[in-house]
């Protein structure tokens, strides 16, 4: 450990390029994300922020003809090392998707899905995990009487919180969120944002958003992406009040995007 900053980082990205076919979607990205902080990626659509998020738990592996050049370390381990088991990686790095995607099974089974997959069979133990995760996701009081109902019957906001509970049930260290409120109404959005503030006590959260107010409300640090490159990274309030780059200022004052 040569300097203080690196030892504190849970995610370290170094000189990362990412290709879809021949198209370079990320150019020379370097970034450190610290433990227990909420880190926001902002930028116009198509700027690479979601791509980078998907690099972090190798969900991009699922898209054919993609290629990663550079280094991504999580807790000091290179996650693109050939010996890495993506299944293990994804247990530690959970994802909440843009569109709520509860499985068409009961609420209970949704939350218990991950733990069951990882070999927990004991009913009592599962029940404890489900309750704890639903409480953490601030959903317990709303669904405790209908855990056996289908998850698809919940409202959009409830579905998204269920998906967050589902991720927490696996006990990850990092939670990735890809525009988690873009499909939700303002009240549901507020609830999810409150939840994100709670989450950082136990988790590191990386959130992609193109809503700047949301980034300002929930995150500690923010990175602005443009055309596959990071333009500026800073403490969120610094970035929004005192941008160093002209492009950042243009973006936050609404000149484009």
């Amino acid at each position: 450990m040569t300097n203080q900053k690196e030892s504190n980082a849970i995610i370290e990205i170094e000189d990362l390029d990412f290709y879809y076919n021949q198209t370079k979607a990320l150019k020379n990205v370097s970034l450190d994300i610290n433990k227990n902080e909420v880190f926001a990626f902002i930028g116009p659509s198509g700027c690479g922020k979601t791509t980078l998020l998907r690099v972090l738990n190798r969900m991009n592996d699922l898209i054919p003809k993609t290629r990663v050049v550079g280094k991504v370390q999580i807790e000091g381990h290179d996650i693109y090392d050939p010996n890495v088991d993506v299944v293990q990686l994804r247990k530690s790095v959970g994802t909440v998707f843009q569109k709520p995607n509860p499985f068409p099974i009961s609420i209970f089974d949704n939350v218990a899905y991950g733990p069951k997959a990882h070999g927990i069979k004991n009913k009592k133990e599962l029940m404890e995990i489900v309750e704890e995760s639903l409480r953490q996701a601030a959903l317990w009081d709303e669904v405790k009487d209908r855990l056996n109902d289908s998850a698809t019957g919940l409202s959009g906001g409830q579905q998204q919180r269920l998906c967050i509970a589902r991720v927490m049930a696996v006990k990850p260290e990092i939670i990735l969120m890809d525009e988690p409120t873009s499909a939700l109404d303002p009240i549901a959005t507020l609830k999810v944002e409150e939840l994100i503030n709670e989450l950082k006590q136990n988790y590191t959260v990386v959130i992609v958003t193109h809503n700047m107010e949301q980034a300002a409300r929930v995150s500690d640090k923010t990175a602005l992406f443009l055309n596959g490159s990071i333009i500026e990274t800073n403490e969120t309030n610094q970035l929004f009040t005192n941008p160093k780059e002209q492009e950042t200022e243009d973006y936050i004052t609404g000149k484009f995007g």
């Binding site: 738990n57 969900m59 699922l62 299944v87 293990q88 990686l89 994804r90 247990k91 530690s92 959970g94 994802t95 998707f97 569109k99 995607n101 509860p102 499985f103 068409p104 899905y113 991950g114 997959a117 990882h118 998906c163 589902r166 991720v167 696996v170």
Partner: peptide
């Protein structure tokens, strides 16, 4: 695909 990714992202095979 959303559901498949949802499941894989939880660290399932």
């Amino acid at each position: 695909n959303n559901l498949k990714e949802g499941s894989l992202a939880l660290g399932t095979t």
